[in-house]
Write a protein that binds this DNA or RNA. Structure first.
Lengths: 214, 214
DNA sequence: ACAAAAGTGTTTTTTATACACCCATGG
DNA sequence: CCATGGGTGTATAAAAAACACTTTTGT
């Protein structure tokens, strides 16, 4: 068995995939981002986005699933949807050597996991350039709400109250939306319709209507 | 010299970078896409987008430059700007094995090259999944015009006539813009201003104003 | 003068935003 | 019956699109 010539650097940069895993469960007041303490060097113990190296032959969606399941402990069945964001290519973003990162989003359904979940408005400092990834991708996520319906449905669920629609929108955008206008925005989406059911989120005030996808 | 164990598959998919290289030179009536006959298998001799494998430690912009210079014969100094589009991850998009492709755009200045240039409205069939890449990326390019000013300036040049602004817009969008409205759109861009100079593109009709970036 | 193309003025449509006020409910 | 939050109606603003018409040129 000939000695491996590990001294020869690989011809390509490594390519990793980092996931902005979101959750907005029925009892969540805001959208949360899934993060985890790193189990290995570098940045051992530090908080970071769930990430994996790309697998040969895998789709990006598959690798995103793997990152969420293995790093956040979320079962695959609880991943409602995933999608692509942008690629980060700073050569020094990983101290181990040049590593591209393809940023993806994922939305997780309510389930037990080993992840830490930070409100999107209070994400702690993260390892690598993950602070920058979160900062750069946040406007992209905000733009997806109500325009990328796969993303929107995954985040809000198959049926949701108007109150929660307001909360999700407030979490992703800078300032909270006008509830009256958001109501009309939802009414203008063909695949979304309002039901007669109402639900109460506060001890007082009118209960909110339930909306469902058709 | 021990035999190379080429039978061991690499752990990651290869990652290539394919470039939608655009030109819109003073004498071009429409925007053209740079393509080239492949010099190697697979698809030897077939037309394809210029593409390269990622280089370790390189920025995506560097590799995009390399693809345009080596595959299209465009000197580096003639590449006005480059940028990122989206990543394609069909596992079977390359017969040699799983290969991701990061699609980039580039804009080339007038200069001699070895490339074929096809009008964007008449791109011939291409190798790999490059037809799909062009189809998927075209709306993204259309959206960049007049909103991504780096892209817009690279395409139209430092100064350009209103007539050419109309032609470039018609080339990237489906149907031609209303010249009156495009005129106002340009006037609303702070870094763009109209000069007193006029230029004639047709044998008849009023000559068009020249616009410049400030 | 006429045809062709650029550009202006103006209207219309659409979309987004704002805000006054009515509705439903628990205390 | 009042405070609270949901929802409707409507006004306002901004942006986009449409279209009639004027200007500038070569023939």
């Amino acid at each position: 068995m000939p000695p491996e010539t590990d001294s020869s650097v690989p011809p390509q940069s490594a390519v990793s995939l980092d996931v902005l895993a979101l959750r907005f469960w029925p009892d969540d007041e805001t959208v949360h981002l899934g993060i985890t303490h790193r189990k290995a060097q570098p940045f051992l113990g530090r908080l970071a986005l769930p990430g994996v190296l790309l697998t040969r032959g895998a789709r990006l969606a598959d690798d995103a699933h793997r990152a969420v399941t293995t790093k956040l402990g979320v079962p695959a069945s609880a991943i409602r949807a995933v999608g692509q964001l942008i690629t980060f290519d700073e050569p020094n973003r990983d101290p181990r050597g040049p590593t591209l990162s393809i940023a993806m989003w994922a939305v997780c359904a309510p389930v037990e996991s080993t992840a830490d979940w930070a409100p999107l408005s209070a994400v702690p400092a993260l390892a690598f350039d993950h602070d920058r990834i979160v900062a750069d991708c946040r406007p992209l996520l905000a733009a997806k709400l109500w325009s990328d319906l796969t993303f929107t449905r995954a985040l809000l669920g198959d049926s949701f109250s108007a109150t929660r629609a307001v909360a999700a929108t407030a979490a992703l955008r800078r300032d909270p939306p006008n509830p009256a206008n958001l109501n009309r925005l939802m009414a203008s989406i063909p695949t979304l319709s309002r039901t007669d059911q109402r639900v109460r989120h506060h001890s007082t005030g009118r209960p909110a209507a339930i909306w469902t996808w058709t």
